[in-house]
Amino acid sequence: MDEVNRMFSGNTVDTTRIWGDHAISVMINALQMAYPGFPKSTVPWRPNALVIAPIQAFQFAFTSSSLVHHPNNAPVILVPEKLTEDLSKEIFRLSPAGKDVEAQTFLIGPVSEIVEHQLKAMGLTTLRIGNARPYETSVSVSEYRLAHSPMSGQGRKNVFLLSGEVYAEGMAAVGYAMHEGLPVLLSKRMEIPHEVQRFLIEHPTLNVFIVGSEASISREVEAQIRAKMKGSVIRISGLSPYEISVNFSYFFDPHTGVGWGRNQPGKGDAFSSVPANDWQLGVISGLFSHLGKHAPLLLIDRNKIPQVVQNYLRYLNPVKKSSQPPYMHAFVFGNFDSISYETQVHLEEQIILQEH
């Protein structure tokens, strides 16, 4: 592995690695790719706000994802109890404009007071949403998202319901929530938390998209939701987190417009890939669902690409009679301890142009 670190750039002709030895360094590199410019971001699409979520708990980051979409254009910043020097410098570089939003930074759940004071000392306004209880916070963020509607109509009429107990099966929905602004509610496997029940009763016409198998959100919970809602209730499931990520990428609902609909061969699709056991990289990858190639997330392992993902990529990448575009692309996140170089090369083999 040391030889690989010395010899290779970490990129291939159709894959780009967003480097970092830990989540914060990967996140900063992703932010600098998405919002380039120094000493401050200079692009017209620079952030309008920032979503600040605690780095230690996936629930708050997942539910915060709906706030990313325009007009907020507010990337999720995962933070520890105190901003590091690198994080402070990056937040300064991003310098969110704060135009037509209630604050330049949205603090989700139990973000520490130390971080809040640091942000204020940088001259940024703050707004707290939620508390230390994840299910209540998922409702608070969802209510805020509905009250301050995203530019996409999808975020006004539809919600995601993900597990608040395990993360792998719901991870693929996070990037789409950033892409279209759908609120993200959380549930327990065997019961709907009281706060979430109340939200659904108060918004009976919403369409609910359950992302995950019955191992993460039970059939009984689904039945309870169907009994409460006038809108549609649709589950996107699979036999594993990998298959769920494939099915989510493939899915499109013509009645609501919800879904990536990446289901036509030869379109030159781009994807992000992270290990199924790393929710932080999953959240970070969502930035590339919000901007740029608008890439869905496909889950893999450090040392292998699951067969269901390989089959999907091969389906989307048929043999072509010419070398003309479009071409496929993949982003991988983290260092070689997150996704090995060999796995990245194997990913390249799945998506490179296949010619007669």
Score class of each variant (00 low, 15 high):
residue 5 N to H: 12
residue 10 G to K: 07
residue 17 R to M: 00
residue 20 G to C: 05
residue 26 V to F: 07
residue 31 L to H: 02
residue 46 R to D: 02
residue 47 P to T: 04
residue 47 P to Y: 04
residue 51 V to I: 13
residue 55 I to F: 05
residue 58 F to H: 11
residue 66 S to N: 07
residue 68 V to A: 07
residue 68 V to C: 06
residue 69 H to V: 08
residue 71 P to C: 08
residue 75 P to H: 12
residue 76 V to P: 04
residue 77 I to M: 13
residue 78 L to R: 09
residue 78 L to I: 00
residue 80 P to G: 05
residue 90 E to Y: 02
residue 93 R to W: 01
residue 98 G to K: 12
residue 99 K to C: 03
residue 104 Q to G: 02
residue 112 S to E: 14
residue 114 I to C: 05
residue 117 H to W: 08
residue 121 A to P: 01
residue 124 L to I: 02
residue 125 T to I: 11
residue 125 T to V: 00
residue 126 T to Q: 09
residue 129 I to D: 02
residue 135 Y to Q: 06
residue 140 S to W: 00
residue 140 S to Y: 10
residue 142 S to D: 13
residue 149 S to Y: 01
residue 151 M to Q: 10
residue 152 S to T: 09
residue 153 G to L: 04
residue 154 Q to V: 09
residue 156 R to F: 03
residue 159 V to R: 01
residue 165 E to F: 00
residue 181 G to N: 09
residue 182 L to F: 02
residue 187 S to E: 03
residue 190 M to N: 13
residue 192 I to W: 01
residue 193 P to E: 08
residue 197 Q to T: 13
residue 198 R to M: 05
residue 202 E to P: 00
residue 207 N to G: 05
residue 211 V to Q: 02
residue 215 A to P: 11
residue 216 S to I: 15
residue 219 R to K: 15
residue 222 E to A: 14
residue 227 A to C: 03
residue 228 K to C: 04
residue 231 G to M: 01
residue 236 I to T: 10
residue 236 I to Q: 06
residue 246 V to K: 13
residue 253 D to A: 09
residue 253 D to E: 14
residue 254 P to Q: 11
residue 255 H to N: 15
residue 265 P to D: 06
residue 267 K to Q: 13
residue 275 P to D: 05
residue 279 W to R: 04
residue 283 V to K: 03
residue 289 S to E: 13
residue 294 H to W: 14
residue 301 D to C: 14
residue 305 I to G: 12
residue 305 I to C: 02
residue 307 Q to M: 13
residue 309 V to W: 00
residue 310 Q to S: 12
residue 316 L to R: 08
residue 325 P to R: 15
residue 326 P to W: 09
residue 329 H to A: 11
residue 331 F to D: 03
residue 331 F to H: 00
residue 333 F to V: 04
residue 336 F to E: 15
residue 346 H to F: 14
residue 347 L to P: 08
residue 351 I to C: 14
residue 352 I to M: 06
residue 355 E to Y: 11
